[in-house]
């Protein structure tokens, strides 16, 4: 076990009995995972892939059937470690008879915070999450976005080292999503570890240092977003401007295909051609290179190409 790991899981499996217990349903299978301290880690998978099951194991809501792990250096299931963990469940539900302020007081007390610390931190978070006006209102009158913000506030109220967020941006409008992203970035700046699940791939591309993808209860990739995208790189595109006929004749002798894009020309290189060699040649020929774009698919395309998340995924 490495000292820097915030989460380290080995061979985690989880099966649930079906209705009437006639058979078992495998939700997770041999999951190995390492999340380093201080990183933002994205956990990607389609609905039913096993993301929430793993998060429930991390937070102690369910027990793994097989495997073992450590969180912040302490064994999985150790209750004491939870004071250093913040958790936002998917579609969080709260006691709707409490006001936002009362809810935070309740959660703060359960996290062992002093009344003074709760007061100070609640005020800070309510302000930061734009909930100050609603602080004294009962939560049954809150919109979905407001509940999500209360969820975020209770997750980071006790200043945890590790923040686990289950689909934190699900169902939010663009401004709500932006706010959650800002908080994740802020947590990263504060040196916290953030582990969040999502099926929205662009969120991972924007926020994460590393990621893992899960499908049918198994992890099939762990690493940086960049490395995953590089695996699927399909070549490079050059956008060229002010190309004279003379220079165009030169370009036609280069590998790749040439096409017109308005007043510009686009040169698409195949994967096997080194773009740096072509770039040097273009510069030598006096061609103005406006942009050089590595042609990579988005994560969504990769998922579709790999056939991940189709029917038959684990529950």
């Amino acid at each position: 076990m490495k000292a820097e790991a915030a989460i380290e899981l080995t061979g985690i499996g989880k099966t649930f009995p079906s209705d009437f217990r006639v058979r078992t349903i495998r939700s997770l299978d041999q999951v190995d995972l390492e999340v380093r301290r201080g990183e933002v880690f994205g956990f990607i998978g389609h609905n039913g892939a096993g993301k929430t099951t793993l998060i429930k194991i991390l937070t102690g809501l369910i027990q793994p059937t097989t495997g073992d792990g450590r969180i912040l250096g302490r064994p999985l299931g150790d209750v004491s470690v939870r004071k250093d963990i913040g958790f936002l469940p998917e579609r969080p539900y709260f006691y709707d008879y409490l006001s936002g302020e009362e809810a935070l007081r309740f959660y703060g007390r359960l996290s062992g915070m002093s009344p003074d610390a709760i007061r100070k931190r609640s005020a800070e978070l309510l302000e930061m999450l734009d909930l100050r006006e609603a602080a004294k209102r009962r939560m049954r009158t809150f919109s979905k976005g407001m509940l999500q913000r209360v969820g975020m506030a209770q997750a980071i109220l006790h200043d945890p080292h590790l923040v686990i967020l289950d689909e934190p941006m699900s169902g939010l409008d663009p401004s709500g999503r932006g706010r959650i992203k800002d908080i994740i970035r802020m947590l990263k700046e504060q040196g916290k570890t953030v582990f969040f699940s999502t099926h929205i791939l662009s969120d991972v591309e924007q926020l994460c240092d590393r990621m893992a993808t899960i499908a049918q209860g198994r992890i099939w990739y762990t690493g940086t977003v960049e490395d995953l995208l590089n695996r699927y790189e399909r070549g490079t595109r050059f956008i060229l401007t002010d190309v004279t006929d003379e220079k165009r004749a030169v370009l036609e002798n280069l590998p790749g295909s040439l096409s017109e894009k308005g007043r510009d020309l686009e040169l698409s290189l195949p994967m096997e051609t080194d773009p740096n060699v072509v770039l040097k040649r273009l510069v030598a020929e006096g061609v103005r290179v406006e942009r050089m774009i590595p042609e990579r698919p988005g994560l969504e395309e990769i998922f579709l190409a790999e056939g991940i998340g189709r029917k038959g995924d684990a529950a």
């Binding site: 469940p89 969080p92 209770q154």
Partner: peptide, 14 residues
């Protein structure tokens, strides 16, 4: 059922 337990039991309580 209402999942209010999620944000309670995941705190340092037994």
């Amino acid at each position: 059922q209402q999942r209010t337990i999620y944000t309670i039991i995941t705190r340092p309580i037994r």
